[in-house]
């Protein structure tokens, strides 16, 4: 049994820089592999609907006839599977997260 074994850690922290960051004012450095959000370059998209069929969350809607592609960001679980199966490789995984909104 020791009295105040935490004291050392607490005093060290008191005089050091905080470990937390003032997100979203300061964003952290993301890694190249980070799964942030899904982007689709619709210029190259052939609207084959592969991403829609493979999406485990059912977040992507593709209507071929109307050349329509939409992602519901609230349903998306950023698993990267759509990017993997995309035959045209026009989908990418952005390493930045969707920015928080205040409304």
């Amino acid at each position: 049994m020791r009295i105040l074994p935490m004291a050392k850690i607490v005093l060290k922290s008191l005089f050091r820089k905080a470990a937390t960051q003032m997100y979203p004012l300061i964003t952290k450095e993301y890694y190249p592999a980070t799964r942030g959000k899904v982007l689709n370059d619709t210029e190259f998209c052939i609207y084959c609907g592969m991403c829609q069929r493979k999406c485990p969350a059912g977040a992507i809607e593709v209507i071929r006839a109307k050349r329509y592609w939409a992602l519901d960001p609230k349903r998306c679980v950023t698993c990267n599977y759509c990017v993997e199966v995309c035959p045209k490789k026009c989908m990418t995984m952005d390493k930045r997260y969707t920015a928080p909104s205040t409304n």
């Binding site: 935490m6 850690i9 470990a19 980070t34 698993c79 990267n80």
Partner: peptide, 30 residues
Amino acid sequence: FESLFMHCWKLREKILDIVEETTGGRVIFG
């Protein structure tokens, strides 16, 4: 014991960072 709580999670952050770097996910590794 709030300071201990924060300190544990501060340590945990390093683990999450390296996992994010290698797998792409912090919480759900995938």
